[in-house]
C-alpha cells in the first residue's frame, strides 16, 4: 500500500516492548521456523514485487497443501466456544475455553451467539456464490476412459466404500477428500508484524474462493479480522488475518512467557508463538508450528 511505501522499515528491536519485528528479526524468526519445521520454506516471489528491505531469497514464508478437514463452526460445536477478549485485545478471542465452564449457566449463550453469527456470515457470502457455482456450465460430457488396468480410481474407491466391500486390488481406504490451504507469511511493514495469508483448495483441489475461507476462521474473527486483499507478492486476492492487533497480542504473549520462564524468549521463538496464536483464529487448519 502507499502508506506502507512511505513508512520507513524498523531498524531497532522492539519485539519485547511492543510485540513488533524489524525486517531483520522477521528473517531470523523465519529461519528458525524453517529449520524446525521443514514443511515451511522461504519463497523468493516475483522480481517486480520484491521488498527491498528483505533479502531477495527470503521474501515470505510458505507451507503448501495443509489439510483442513473440518469447518471452524463444526470444530467449535464440540470443542466449546471461544471467549471474546475485551480491552486492548478487543476483537481477539481465547480459544476453546467454553467447555471449562462449571454448570454452564450464562456462558451457555456464548456458543449460540458465535455459531449464529458465523452461520449468518457464511449465508451472506455463500448464497450468491452457490448460485454462481451452479451457473458454471460444467462440461457434462464424459470422455472415453483410458484403457489402463493399473490405475487406482478415486470414484471406484468411493463406490466400493459405500457398498462396504473391497473392490479388487484397487481400493484405497486411507485417502480422504479434504480442503487444503497454502499458507504464506509476509512481513507487513506498516504494522511491523508478520501477516498470514490463506489460499485454499476445495476437496477436489480446485481453487477455493477467498470468501469461502471465512468458513475456516473461528466465528469471532470471521466477522472482524479477516479481510480479502491482494497478496503483496502474487497480487491475487487472498484471505488474510488483518495484522492491526498482532503486536498487542504478541506483546502480551511475550510478557506471559517471560513471567512463566523468568527470562525473555529469544526473537527466534517469535514465529512459533505467533503461529500458535494464529491457530486460535484458524483452528482447523493443521499447519506445523511446534519446536
Amino acid at each position: 500500500s502507499s502508506v506502507e511505501n512511505l513508512t520507513p522499515a524498523r531498524t531497532s528491536s522492539a519485539y519485547e516492548s511492543q510485540g513488533v519485528l524489524s525486517p531483520d528479526e522477521f528473517v531470523l524468526a523465519g529461519d528458525a521456523l524453517v529449520r524446525a519445521c521443514p514443511t515451511w520454506s522461504w519463497a523468493r516471489g516475483s522480481d517486480e514485487k520484491a521488498k527491498k528491505f528483505l533479502p531477495r531469497e527470503k521474501q515470505y514464508l510458505v507451507t503448501r497443501r495443509v489439510p483442513c478437514a473440518k469447518r471452524a463452526k463444526d470444530m467449535e460445536a464440540y470443542a466449546g466456544s471461544e471467549i471474546a477478549l475485551g480491552g486492548e485485545d478487543e476483537g481477539w478471542v481465547k480459544a476453546g475455553e467454553g467447555r471449562v465452564v462449571d454448570g454452564g449457566g450464562g456462558d451457555g449463550e456464548i456458543p449460540d451467539i458465535g455459531t449464529l453469527t458465523l452461520d449468518d456470515a457464511s449465508k451472506k457470502t455463500t448464497n450468491d456464490e452457490t448460485m454462481k457455482i451452479d451457473d458454471i456450465p460444467e462440461i457434462g460430457e464424459d470422455f472415453e476412459d483410458e484403457d489402463d488396468d493399473a490405475v487406482v480410481l478415486p470414484s471406484a474407491t468411493e463406490i466400493a466404500r459405500a457398498a462396504g466391500r473391497v473392490n479388487g486390488g484397487t481400493e484405497d481406504d486411507d485417502i480422504v477428500k479434504t480442503r487444503t490451504y497454502d499458507l504464506t507469511i509476509t512481513y507487513d511493514k506498516y504494522y511491523q508484524t508478520p501477516r498470514v495469508w490463506l489460499n485454499g483448495y476445495d476437496e477436489n483441489s480446485l481453487v477455493l474462493k477467498p470468501s469461502k475461507t471465512l468458513e475456516d476462521v473461528s466465528a469471532e474473527h470471521a466477522q472482524k479480522t479477516v479481510t480479502i486483499d491482494p497478496h503483496p507478492h502474487t497480487g491475487v486476492p487472498s484471505a488474510s488475518i488483518h495484522p492491526c492487533k498482532h503486536s498487542s497480542v504478541m506483546k502480551k504473549l511475550v510478557e506471559s512467557m517471560r513471567a512463566e520462564r523468568g527470562e525473555s524468549p529469544s526473537v527466534e521463538t517469535y514465529m512459533f508463538v505467533f503461529l500458535k496464536f494464529i491457530a486460535s483464529v484458524i483452528p482447523t487448519v493443521e499447519y506445523d508450528y511446534t519446536l
Partner: peptide, 12 residues
C-alpha cells in the same frame, strides 16, 4: 495399481 497424480493450480 498406482494412485494418479493430482494437479493443484492456484489463483496466482
Amino acid at each position: 495399481a498406482f494412485a494418479p497424480h493430482a494437479s493443484a493450480p492456484d489463483g496466482g
